Computed example of a mutant assay.
Amino acid sequence: MSELKLKISAEMKAAMRAKDKARLGTIRLMMSEIKRIEVDERIELDDTRVLAVLDKMQKQRRDSISQFDTAGRQDLADLERQELEVIKTFLPQPLTEQELADLIAQAISTTAAQSMQDMGKVMAIIKPQIQGRADGGAVSKLVKAQLAG
């Protein structure tokens, strides 16, 4: 069993003991999404895949927050923010701008990328390194700027 999944399970038990309903609800959502994928694909998820699931859940929460804010539903936006904070506790430390710039520069030099046509090669190298630590869309924009400039 993956270490991250064990950590989530242990935190779920701790939230039950502490009677922290908000945290427990979010952790249960995380566990159910992991279990759903494991049952559908008949595999045991490793840490990388669990991180991908959590990263996707984080992105969904961010999208929901922006939509609820636009619609004036502060109550629902606040609920999503609480869930987002719980999910973030299981993700690795976000990359700094400098670390991200270094990763991009290294990937570009490794692939000898010259133009936008090489973007796929560059992103293929970067994506596993940023999983759960940076937003893929933002990284994609930075890579485009580097390759275009």
Rank of each mutant, 00 (worst) to 15 (best):
E83W: 12
S115Q: 11
K59W: 04
R62V: 03
Q93S: 06
L24Q: 05
M123N: 00
A112H: 03
D78Y: 12
I37F: 08
I104P: 06
T96E: 09
S32R: 12
V122I: 04
V122P: 10
S140I: 00
Q74G: 09
L51Q: 07
T96C: 05
I27S: 14
Q67A: 12
L103Q: 10
D46C: 10
V39E: 15
T26V: 01
Q74T: 11
K21D: 15
L103R: 07
R81Y: 01
K59S: 10
I108P: 01
D135V: 01
S140V: 01
L54C: 15
M116I: 11
G136W: 06
S2K: 04
A112S: 13
S115F: 00
E80I: 00
E11L: 08
F68Y: 08
Q129D: 00
Q58E: 13
R42K: 03
M30A: 08
A71F: 04
A113W: 00
L6Y: 04
A52H: 06
E33P: 06
F68D: 10
M57G: 04
M1C: 12
T70L: 07
F68A: 01
I108V: 13
E38N: 13
D40C: 01
L29F: 15
T111C: 06
V50H: 09
I87L: 02
T89A: 13
Q114H: 10
Q106M: 15
A71Y: 05
M116G: 05
L142V: 03
K13R: 01
K19S: 14
I8W: 08
G72K: 07
R81T: 01
A15Q: 14
K88V: 02
D55P: 00
L142A: 11
K59D: 07
R81P: 03
Q74F: 05
M119G: 08
Q60P: 01
A113C: 11
A101V: 01
I87C: 02
D75T: 07
L51V: 06
A148K: 09
E11Y: 06
T96Y: 02
E3N: 15
K144P: 04
S2Y: 08
D102H: 10
Q129E: 02
A22F: 13
V143Y: 06
G120C: 11
I27A: 13
L103A: 09
M57Q: 05
A77M: 02
G149K: 05
A134S: 08
